[in-house]
């Protein structure tokens, strides 16, 4: 079975894209590790929203703020620890857990 069959939960990502703000620089399509964006002509197009892993690379590298996403780590352990400590879920690699 190929990697393309590895898909995570549908309709959960917080990714939002406003194509009106897009200036066509192509950075989002360049940085996305799951090909969520591709360049179509002079604009970027959101083609596979459910593949988004909310890493935030596209948002960070978009010079016009056309992309919104609540970035975070998709790690259960980080979320549990975040809840226990009352902080944001953060992959705290400095402890001896398996995260990262």
């Amino acid at each position: 079975m190929k990697y393309r069959n590895m898909k995570y939960l549908k309709n959960v990502t917080t990714l939002k894209y406003n194509s009106e703000k897009c200036i066509g620089c192509g950075m989002c399509a360049d940085v996305c590790p799951h090909s969520v964006f591709i360049m179509q002509g002079r604009k970027s197009a959101l083609i596979d929203k459910d593949a988004c892993m909310e890493c935030g690379a596209c948002k960070k590298n978009c010079p016009t703020g056309a992309i919104e996403v609540t970035e975070g780590v998709g790690c259960a352990y980080a979320i549990v620890m975040g809840k226990l400590r009352g902080t944001e879920p953060s992959c705290d690699c400095s402890n001896d857990t398996g995260c990262c």
């Binding site: 995570y8 892993m53 780590v73 998709g74 979320i79």
Partner: peptide, 18 residues
């Protein structure tokens, strides 16, 4: 817990399944 090691899960999804 393996969601943390995987390369394709997202925070919203993990929160939901938890």
């Amino acid at each position: 817990n393996f969601t943390g090691s995987s390369t394709y899960t997202n925070l919203s999804g993990v929160v939901k399944e938890m």
